[in-house]
Structure formats: C-alpha cells, structure tokens
Computed example of a mutant assay.
Amino acid sequence: MSTRRTCLVSARKTPTTNAGLWLDKFIRNQAREDKDSRHDLVREVSDIPVPEEYSRWFERWRRVLQDYGAACRVAEVLGRIAVGLGEESVLETSVALHHTYGVPYIPGSALKGLAASFARQYLGDDWQANAGAYKTVFGDTDTAGYVIFFDALPLPGSRLLYPDVITVHHEGYYQKGDKPPADWDSPNPVPFLSATGKYLVALAGPDAWVKAAFEILQYALLNLGVGAKTSSGYGRLRLESVPPITGVEDRKVDQLINQIRALRTSEVAGRIQAFYEQWWKLDVSPEHKRRIAEAIVAKVKEAGREKQSLDKDWYRELLESLR
C-alpha cells in the first residue's frame, strides 16, 4: 500500500519542486522490506534541479554577508560529502537540505566543530579546550567565541545531489549481534543522497582570529573532512579564494569618491593624503584607480591647494598616474 496521501499519488516533479519536501513526503512505500521504493526516492530527489530563484537569493545572501563584514572563501568538494546522514528521515539515512530551497548545505555548527576538533588534536597546548586561543575562537560552555561560523551554502550553477549507496554485508551481526559475520551473508545495499559542488564558507569576527580560523578550517576540511563517512574518503573540501561579487568593486569605489567629494575646503589640507593612501592600497581595476585619482586631484584644485601639493611626492604620483 502506498504511504502517500491519495491526492498525492499522481503528483509529479516540476522545476519548482523542493528536494527536501519530496524526500520527506513522496516515498511510495515506507515499508522496510520495499527496497525499490527507497532506491527510487533517492534517484527522484537527486534529479530535482536547483530552483531558479535560488541564484537570486544566493546573491542577496552573499551581499548580506559582505555588509555584515564577514570574510568569505569558496570550498570545493573533492568527491562527495554526506552531511546530516544520521538525522531523522523516512529512509534509514538523511541529508542536510535547505528548508526553503532544498539545496544541500553545511551547517555552521559542523564547520565550527570540525575546526575545534582539529585544533585540539593537532595544534598543541595553545589550542587545547582550556587555552586562551581556543576559547577566543571557539568559546566554551560559559562564553561564546569571537568568530562566527555561518552555514556554508552552495554556489548556483551545477548539479549538487547524487544517488549513493552504503552496502551492509553482515546485517544480522550489526543489528542483533547474535550471529557472527560470515562469507555467505547477503549484502544489503542502503540508498542515500550525497552532495558535491562548491560552497561559500563565511566567518565573521576580529580579522586576526578569522584568519586563524580559516587556516585551521583549511587543513581540517582537506585532511579530516566534514560530515559522515570521512573514513571512506567523503567530506573532503579544498578552500579557495571567493570569486568577485558582481558590483561590489563599483560600490566600494563610488563610496570612496563620494567621501572625497564631501570634504569641506577646511578639511582638505589635513585629510586628503589619507585618501591617497587608500588609493595606493586599493586592489581595484585600473579604470577605478583612475577615477579615484581624478577625484582627489579635483578636490585639491577645488580647495586651492594645488601649488602647495605639487611639492608632495604623493600628489605628483597621482598626477603621473593620470598621464
């Protein structure tokens, strides 16, 4: 007998189907002995595409992280990951899926736990649970750590979920323990969903401690792995630089130019060189560098300070960049 409600028996997937909802509610038969229904459900969920709306939501999420001051890097899965495998599910296995969009994700708590475990195991006395550095980054039972670990969401644009299988060879021995394992035991394939793709990893906090946390996380993700079945090679990710966010460079430059233009004449002598120093350090395109240089020179001329500024090395460097 089908476990779906009668009104859902003929339901079919659509481009807007939520993978998590389908996984939870659309198994044909939940009886343990009906293995075909379980395999079919896993295949059905793995074929559900990422919703088109997710791309737009993801860009908003990334802008929110940036506005909050979070540092972001991309982590690429080397093979597959199995996060949330032991959570409650209609199957014997589960997977962590975003509630609204049905995409796989890595909870921030999993990333924080992995980094903390790696620090305790491999980084010596300074990173034990009672040490200052450890408490600063990860906190303890009384206080929160200085570094916030956000959930890692997948970058849009690729297939994320795949059907996978765990093969139990000695089911009677593992379940009851009353039968010793034997060569003639029948294998029992258990279907589950694993994920791949690239994920946006975001941390927030004091710069020095965020940098330290990223360094720890980089080694932990590559060598220990996150999620389940790490002893079988699952869960390995390689951290890389985050791709540029569309429009961010323009907004950063526009903001700086507006600050230059807002300077009062009486403030130019004391503050304009600080804007040159920002210009010199800023890693933006040549076109944007030129726009900022032009704004600084224009403000100097507007304040009637070009003659005095021509004696300054920094001002001559700006003029040289505009030739």
Rank of each mutant, 00 (worst) to 15 (best):
G197E: 11
S232E: 09
I216L: 03
D140Y: 04
H169K: 08
E171P: 02
R236G: 02
I166E: 14
D164F: 05
V201K: 11
R251P: 01
A131H: 01
L221Y: 13
L256M: 11
L160C: 04
V201L: 03
P191A: 09
F214P: 15
D254S: 14
N130I: 04
S241F: 11
I166D: 14
A213L: 04
A182R: 05
I216A: 01
S231N: 12
A212Q: 06
V253E: 10
A131Y: 00
F149E: 01
Q175A: 10
Q259N: 15
V248L: 15
G225D: 10
S241D: 15
T167S: 08
G233W: 14
D185M: 05
P181L: 09
A182L: 09
T196G: 10
Y174F: 04
R264V: 05
L221R: 08
G177N: 09
K211R: 12
A220Y: 02
A262G: 03
G145L: 00
I257L: 05
V226K: 06
Y219D: 05
G247K: 10
P180S: 13
E215H: 04
G177A: 03
A262Y: 08
H169Q: 08
V248S: 05
G225Y: 09
D183L: 08
Q255W: 10
G124F: 00
Q218V: 01
Y134I: 00
H170K: 02
A129V: 01
E215L: 05
I245G: 02
E171I: 08
R264N: 15
W127Y: 12
L222K: 08
Y199A: 09
K229R: 13
T141M: 04
K211M: 03
K229H: 11
A119R: 00
G139L: 06
S186A: 14
I245K: 03
K229L: 13
G177M: 05
A144G: 10
R251H: 09
R261F: 11
A119D: 00
Y146A: 00
F149Y: 05
L222M: 11
G172W: 05
P244W: 12
L161S: 06
Q218P: 09
T230M: 04
V242P: 11
Y219S: 03
K179I: 12
Q259H: 13
K135E: 00
Y122D: 04
L161F: 02
I216D: 01
K135P: 00
E240W: 07
P187V: 10
K176I: 04
Y122W: 12
A212T: 01
D142H: 03
F149D: 01
R159T: 14
V137D: 00
V248Y: 07
V242Q: 12
R159G: 14
D185K: 02
A262E: 10
A195D: 06
T143M: 02
S186V: 15
F138P: 00
F149R: 06
N223F: 11
A119P: 00
Y162I: 09
L224T: 07
S231C: 10
S241A: 15
G247V: 06
P206Q: 07
P189K: 13
V226S: 08
E249G: 06
L160S: 06
L160P: 08
A204G: 12
G233F: 14
S231A: 14
A152Y: 06
G172M: 12
L200W: 14
T265S: 15
V168T: 15
Y174L: 15
F214E: 09
I216Q: 00
L123N: 03
Y199F: 15
R120W: 06
Y234A: 11
L193I: 15
Q175I: 06
G247L: 07
Y162S: 14
